[in-house]
Structure formats: structure tokens, C-alpha cells
Design a protein around this nucleic acid. Structure first.
Length: 301
DNA sequence: CGTCCAGGTCTAC
DNA sequence: GGTAGACCTGGACGC
């Protein structure tokens, strides 16, 4: 299986730059191999066991290689759709590139940067994002690894131990994992009750998170309002999740992006309002422009 | 050892 | 509406 490396507006897609678009691409059930420049993800399927897919670039296409038991035709199509969604291949970034072309600091993105690897579901996005709040990255990894390892369904032939080869757990699995799991195994501290509350509301249908990714009628403000209503989701988390939803209007301002902005811009200090003003020219792409600005040097690391 | 704080958020004023 | 103080955890740091 393969997917063309063109956006909906005909713009180029830099697959490697997409793989390393942000840290969440290296959290289970996803990982990036720097050595062979590949991306791996284990996706849940509606009517079949999860599958692990290896994505690499081959002859200007994204090549998809399904590990383990071969999927049937329906499952194969679902895998393809899911990977295209995760790589954001359906998105049209040509309008953003038009704006970036006139900005010396960002004209480099027009060769195919700007596709932020996303998770298969909004639910997964939210749980992972809460795992990034108020802790070091090592703790984020510990929590997500434990959640996927112990609660996620394995693909046939997955390694018996560890998180790899398992899909992100369902809301049901997280809702019923119990306090003890989040406290003693995931060591998620005060976040455990948040996870279970969100998962319960999704599982019983009282909250529809997936709609936030698909309903174009919802304004950015409305989406932000609904995200902020979730326990554990504040301004930073809402901005991060919105970026994953393709709602790029908010800037992700946190303890990493603020100092990184100053370093890249060569400034000594800047208020949030000043930073927001710098990227205002990008309109609905302001947050994406800001993120690409602070990660400018990632590709050559 | 204690204190600080890391890709913040919640509650109570 | 704006702002302290508490909050799980575990490295990094100063004493």
C-alpha cells in the first residue's frame, strides 16, 4: 500500500519533517526511527485486531507496510485511511504556504513542513496531552507507556511485554482501569481521576470528543470552550489539542516554547501578547506558524 | 538532605 | 476577572 505525498492543494509533503513534527509522534502507539527514517504506529480497527504499520518514503510516495497477520480488504482500507488521517495527508496547507513564502523566518516550510502528526482519535490526543502537563517529558513517557502497555489491545504477534505493538486503549478500558492502576503503575498522580472521568463520559456517550475533529460548524472559540470544560485541560492543553485538530489559531505558549521562541528569534524577552502579534499575520495558521518557528532547527538535528 | 520545577490546572478567595 | 496555593511525580540542583 502507498499514499501520494501531495496535500489537498497540490502542495508538497515532506514525510520526514512530518514524522518529527512534534514529540507526541514518539509516544506509544507511535514511534520514529531516526536510523531508517521510518514511522511506526499501531492502529485499532473496527472489526479486526489492531495492526502495526511501518511508514517509509519510497519513490516519492508514503509506503505502508503492515506487520504481522495480513489484514483483509476492509481492514486494509481502514488502515490506509487511518494512516492518512494520522499523517494529515488530506489537509490543504497551500494557503498557509502562501503566507509563509513572504516571511524570511518561515519560507523554508513551503517545501513540505507543517503537517503535525496526529493521533487516531481525539480521545487519545486529549489523554496524551494531559500527560504532558506539569511534568517533565520523562514522566509523560512513563505515563503513556504504562497506559498503552497495560490497557491497550495488542496486534497479533505483538511483543509480549512493553507498549509497542499495542493500540491506544479504548475509553472503556481507561474508564475501568481503576485508581490503583493510575496511581501505582502509571504514577499519574492527580491526573488519574481526570482520565477516568473523561473516559467514562466518552464511553457512556455523554461527551462526544470525536465530533470536535469533524464538525466544521463549531467555531474555534466553541471548541476551546468544550476542551477547557474537560478536567485537566487548561489553556496550554486546549491550544495543543486544537493544533492537533487542525485548529491553528491558538499559540502553544508553555515553559518550552516561550524560551525557545526567544532563542530562535534572538530576543531577550517578549510578552505573550508580543509573540501573538508577531504571528497575527498568519490568521488561522498563527499557531502552526509559531510552532514551526520554534522547531525550525529540528530537521537538521 | 530540602527546594525547585518540568511542554499546568484547579479551587478558593 | 484575576491571582495565590496546592497538587502527583521524580530528576536537577544547592546546601
Amino acid at each position: 500500500m502507498s499514499l501520494p505525498l501531495r496535500g489537498r492543494g497540490g502542495e508538497p509533503v515532506d514525510l520526514w519533517r512530518t514524522f518529527i513534527s512534534h514529540g507526541v509522534a514518539s509516544l506509544p502507539p507511535m514511534r520514529v526511527s531516526e536510523d531508517d527514517r521510518t514511522f511506526e504506529v499501531t492502529v485499532a480497527l473496527r472489526r479486526a485486531k489492531p495492526r502495526t504499520v511501518l511508514v517509509s518514503e519510497s519513490r516519492g510516495m508514503a509506503r505502508l507496510e503492515v506487520r504481522g497477520r495480513a489484514p483483509g480488504p476492509d481492514a486494509a482500507q481502514e488502515i490506509k485511511d487511518s494512516v492518512a488521517h494520522i499523517l494529515r495527508l488530506h489537509e490543504d496547507l497551500s494557503g498557509f504556504y502562501e503566507l509563509a513564502r513572504g516571511d524570511d523566518a518561515l519560507s523554508w516550510v513551503t517545501s513540505g513542513a507543517g503537517r503535525m502528526i496526529r493521533s487516531a482519535t481525539v480521545f487519545e490526543e486529549i489523554i496524551k496531552t494531559i500527560c504532558t502537563t506539569n511534568c517533565a517529558w520523562s514522566a509523560t513517557k512513563r505515563m503513556v507507556h504504562a497506559i498503552v502497555e497495560h490497557l491497550g489491545e495488542p496486534a497479533p504477534g505483538a511483543p509480549p511485554d512493553g507498549a509497542w505493538g499495542r493500540a491506544f486503549p479504548t475509553p472503556e478500558a481507561i474508564a475501568t482501569a481503576g485508581d490503583g492502576f493510575f496511581k501505582q503503575v502509571a504514577r499519574a498522580g492527580y491526573r488519574g481521576p481526570y482520565f477516568m472521568a473523561i473516559a467514562r463520559d466518552v464511553a457512556d456517550g455523554s461527551v462526544d470528543l470525536e465530533r470536535l475533529a469533524t464538525d466544521d460548524e463549531l467555531s474555534d472559540d466553541e471548541i476551546e470552550k468544550r476542551l477547557l470544560a474537560l478536567p485537566g485541560v487548561g489553556p496550554y492543553a486546549a491550544a495543543h489539542i486544537m493544533m492537533m485538530l487542525g485548529r491553528y489559531s491558538r499559540l502553544i505558549l508553555d515553559s518550552w516554547t516561550r524560551p525557545t521562541y526567544l532563542r530562535v528569534a534572538g530576543k531577550r524577552s517578549a510578552t505573550d501578547a508580543t509573540i501573538v502579534r508577531r504571528f497575527k499575520r498568519y490568521g488561522r495558521y498563527a499557531g502552526l506558524a509559531f510552532w514551526l518557528f520554534v522547531t525550525s532547527d529540528w530537521a537538521d538535528e
